[in-house]
């Protein structure tokens, strides 16, 4: 498909029109945070690079998602619930596009989860590339999630006065066609795109002392590292890191009853392996009781288990967990310290 170019003014116009007729969500800055929110006008969109407080996966796997409804007053009736509300998500960053591609691989390709699939079929993803690192916590370049080969409907790159638009799907094509003012990209545009990409390399230095595909071996060797005990002592088991992580998808399944006690709903709600109850069984025994084991499990899931099982990065280097950890537990430092064993000093300085 031929790439397009659209001026910034035309894009804003287009988004204004789009937001007037459907649900458009985009990063909105308020105080120190950026959040994905419904927007009414394009002017509300923030172009700050900081990853949003919660990742856009909140639209595909909501923190509390109804799965079924049941009534028991007239026989028993069970109705599965599939959300079909249309959403256009604008301004999804490369790291989050990688995370969503992972969720697709798990919930669609592997699990055929109709609840996820239905939401996924009704969301349009308009990505925006990053040309400079968001802050000191990001390490997307090291996780090789800065380049986005697929997984978007449209992908925009800032060329200064205009955006270069890559089309990733037929849906994206339809959308860009409705964006009347876009023109076909020509040789010079592609040169400018390449320059923009090339200029990133200087800005995005490698933050990890290992490549992402060396993490599984590193973590496997580090099972007995003292670092886990050090981190276990500090960790508050507050679940902040897992709640904000774009690749975290663990959940609990629970029931609620209606007030007439004749019906109710079954739902899933985000859960966290950092919480004590997560691995507790019927006998009251927790299989991951020491905090150090829980922290170790999280980093293994991020750096190793997911990659081994699904062939995709289980951590996309967005740095959200580090930004949200009150005691400074930070994947860059954790991975680098494991690499530089033995560990003596603690992480927080």
């Amino acid at each position: 498909m031929i790439d397009r170019v659209v001026t910034k003014a035309d894009l804003l116009d287009f988004l204004d029109r789009l937001a007037a007729e459907r649900k458009v969500v985009a990063p909105v800055a308020e105080g120190p945070l950026v959040r994905f929110k419904d927007i009414g006008r394009a002017a509300e969109i923030s172009d700050r690079y900081l990853p949003t407080a919660l990742p856009p996966s909140k639209y595909l796997l909501p923190p509390k998602e109804l799965l079924l409804r049941f009534r028991t007053d007239d026989g028993v009736a069970i109705e599965p619930l599939f959300d079909t509300g249309e959403i256009v998500a604008f301004g999804v960053r490369p790291c989050d596009l990688h995370a969503l591609a992972l969720l697709d691989a798990i919930f669609i390709d592997d699990k055929h989860d109709g609840h996820y699939l239905s939401r996924r079929e009704h969301i349009t993803l308009i990505g925006v590339e990053c040309l400079e690192p968001c802050d000191e916590h990001c390490f997307c370049a090291s996780m090789e999630t800065l380049d986005v080969p697929s997984g978007y409907d449209l992908l925009l790159t800032d060329l200064g006065d205009a955006y270069y638009v890559q089309i990733g799907s037929s849906l994206g094509k339809t959308l860009v066609e409705s964006l009347g003012a876009a023109r076909d990209a020509v040789y010079e545009d592609r040169t400018r795109l390449r320059k923009a990409h090339d200029s990133r390399h200087a800005a995005f230095t490698r933050r990890l002392d290992v490549t992402y595909d060396q993490l599984p071996a590193l973590l496997a060797e580090s099972s007995d590292s003292l670092l886990w005990d050090v981190l276990g002592e500090k960790c508050l088991s507050c679940g902040a890191c897992t709640n904000v992580c774009p690749t975290c998808y663990c959940f609990d399944v629970r029931d609620e009853v209606d007030l007439d006690l004749e019906g109710g709903r079954r739902y899933r709600a985000w859960d966290s392996c950092q919480l004590e109850e997560f691995a507790m069984v019927g006998t009251g025994e927790s299989f991951r009781q020491p905090r150090s084991m829980r922290v170790k499990h999280r980093f293994n899931r991020k750096g190793r288990y997911i990659l081994e099982r699904y062939g995709r990065q289980g951590c996309v280097g967005c740095g959200r967990c580090a930004r949200n950890c009150l005691v400074g537990i930070n994947p860059i430092e954790v991975f680098n310290q494991l690499k530089g064993q033995p560990v003596e000093r603690t992480v927080r300085t």
Partner: peptide, 20 residues
């Protein structure tokens, strides 16, 4: 149905700016 976990879990889900 009373949670066993701390308030931060719910607070981060609300996308609050942390008091700290």
């Amino acid at each position: 149905p009373v949670p066993t976990y701390p308030v931060c879990v719910e607070c981060r889900l609300k996308e609050n700016v942390c008091a700290y």
